[in-house]
Design a protein around this nucleic acid. Structure first.
Lengths: 339, 339
DNA sequence: TGAGCCTTTGCACAAATGTGCAACGGCAGC
DNA sequence: GCTGCCGTTGCACATTTGTGCAAAGGCTCA
């Protein structure tokens, strides 16, 4: 009889077996799908497990299976509206296919990030999803070299190994330009940040190119880290000059909110009469009555679904590797004049 | 010689040992703090580990130690500004003390939540932190019964077993009342939600009590789930009546933003001239120029630090059990008239 | 040079689980 | 009643790691 420390520690299958009067194998089989157990012993085992509060130890189980069931999510700025929504969507989907999410926050000092990443590899994560453009490429390489299944969201590193899920930033940015151009705007500013994230750069570039094709040149302002503050600051800089722009493409909704607030509060401008604004992401605040921001919706649900398909071993036809690209559809609200 | 599947699967300590020409014990000791290994073999081992891409398997390690290093965070609405900031703060702190966070999202259908919680118990999490008031009490009981170390944030269930970290909602709500009362407001509304979360209820009750002591009665409106939409709806309901309130205490900043937008956009009211508003949480949007909301700051950093202290085994004087309560300090902005 | 001590190393066992294989028991069919 | 088959069960071994214990080796001191 193994020692019973009541309340202390966790219960093992051995203890359940003893209480139920069966072998440990029977306990194991009871909790293994598709294993052969008679109905009577299964019942005895479940009853004993219930009274002892037994839960299968996944750590030990994962030693044998390849599948640990853990999916690691690496990202920075998870307190941001867009990222937190992405995190929300992915964790929910993962739970639905019996995976569990481990979150590595790369916002802190890089030392602890490195340690945390090693943690992840140590836990034999089933896959690693890189949520944002910020985590350093070296981290990602470490994952790949260790045989990790890596999924990149909105990155453009041309690494071969990871699967890429991207949003068609270029198409959306071109469409953004045409929205503003058709609204009659000719002095258009691009508001971006110093982050230099691949997707932000892609938006800047495509917008600039589309403007060039229409014979316009644009000025790009990068006033700080991506966020409300940088947008506000950009607004102060751009609108205090003599030739104010008549429109702005903000590569992020947060930037757009800051920019709009600067325009209205600091300069008393009217949006969209004097100034049209287009954002990107469609965060919740874009729909608030104070902003009613015209923007592009991140296909968060589609991205999360795709990740699920890549990871769900039960899926009849698992999505296969390489690249997946989703569209960001425009959301018309009130910050761009109708034609 | 053990089989070498190049690229496939993970590397084990056995393979490293063979490449380095030492015993597996030497490999194990190399990666164990305080174990006795000579400098020369340590170097050989580290070199071999580097070329093979070896990482210690924490799952196996956790079989032996009590300490799995995993901390489970259970919460709903993690896409909300307050919760995502809390999540951000906690995950960072956990990484700093060499723990890693597993996130269980209780927003989805309860089936998958239940499954995910079982997952957590299965992974022998070091502790379980309940982030919000929403996850059902039965989940928490399951954790406690299974011998889990449970930490509750802002809950008031009087369960004995878990440690409680709370914010002094009552004191803040009383202070909120006095702020509005001193500003001359007499017809004060309380805007809440149908969530019925312990902390929200505590704020409602304390505010009502403080008003009662001052000889005022307040009306409480609960227009839906906690969020911007419910605040907006509450604004529409309250302000369309004949005797409009001259102030509102919104138990959440999101409610406050919605309420303010309804007041300004739908009714053209001026805040704070005609209507004073006080919120709670001090989310980022409260500081945006469009709102400049006077509110109470959630002591997120203190809460996260306290969790760290509870969990850090290396801490010289670990914080001990029972209850911890932090203050929510007022943040004066522009939605309450100065006296 | 020998004795003693300390460091280092390897063996073997422990942790909790899944599973192949053989044995066992019951049931049906002849 | 016997034979054959099928479902069930237990044993033993596998997964990967940490660690106590004993042995070995090297170094120092007499």
């Amino acid at each position: 009889m193994s020692e019973l420390k009541p309340g202390r520690s966790f219960v093992s299958a051995q203890q359940v077996a003893e209480l139920a009067g069966v072998s440990r194998s029977a306990v194991s089989r009871t909790f293994t799908d598709g294993a052969s157990v008679s109905e009577t012993t299964r019942k005895k085992v479940l009853e004993a497990a219930e009274t002892l509060g037994y839960h299968v130890n996944h750590l030990a189980r994962s030693l044998i299976h390849e599948d640990s069931g853990i999916v690691c999510l690496i990202g920075a700025d998870i307190n941001t509206p867009y990222h937190s929504r992405l995190l929300d969507a992915i964790t929910r989907r993962l739970q639905a296919i019996n995976r569990v999410a481990m979150v590595i926050n790369t916002s802190g000092d890089s030392d602890s990030v490195d340690a945390a990443l090693r943690q992840t590899l140590n836990y034999r994560a089933n896959a690693t999803v890189v949520l944002s453009g910020t985590p350093p490429a070296s981290l990602i390489n470490t994952c790949i070299n260790s045989g990790q299944h890596v999924i990149l969201i909105n990155r453009d590193d041309h690494l071969d190994g990871p699967e890429n899920i991207t949003v068609d930033n270029a198409a959306a940015a071109r469409e953004a330009f045409h929205m503003l151009h058709r609204a009659g705007c000719r002095r258009i500013a691009v508001v971006s940040s110093q982050a230099g994230t691949p997707s932000l750069v892609a938006r800047e570039r495509a917008f600039e190119a589309a403007a060039g094709e229409a014979g316009l040149s644009v000025t790009i302002t990068r006033a700080g880290p991506t966020g409300y503050g940088a947008g506000f600051e950009a607004g102060r800089l751009l609108l205090s000059g003599s030739d104010r722009p008549d429109a702005a493409f903000c590569v992020t909704d947060l930037l757009a909110c800051g920019f709009m607030d600067a325009a209205r509060v600091e300069f008393g401008m009217n949006v969209p009469a004097e100034l049209c604004v287009v954002g990107f992401d469609d965060i919740e605040q874009a729909g608030w009555a104070s902003y009613q921001l015209t923007t592009f919706r991140q296909p968060i649900a589609q991205v999360a679904d795709h990740i699920t398909k890549l990871l769900d071993s039960d899926d009849p036809e698992p999505a296969q590797g390489g690249r997946a690209c989703f569209h960001a559809d425009p959301v018309w609200r009130r910050t761009v004049r109708p034609r």
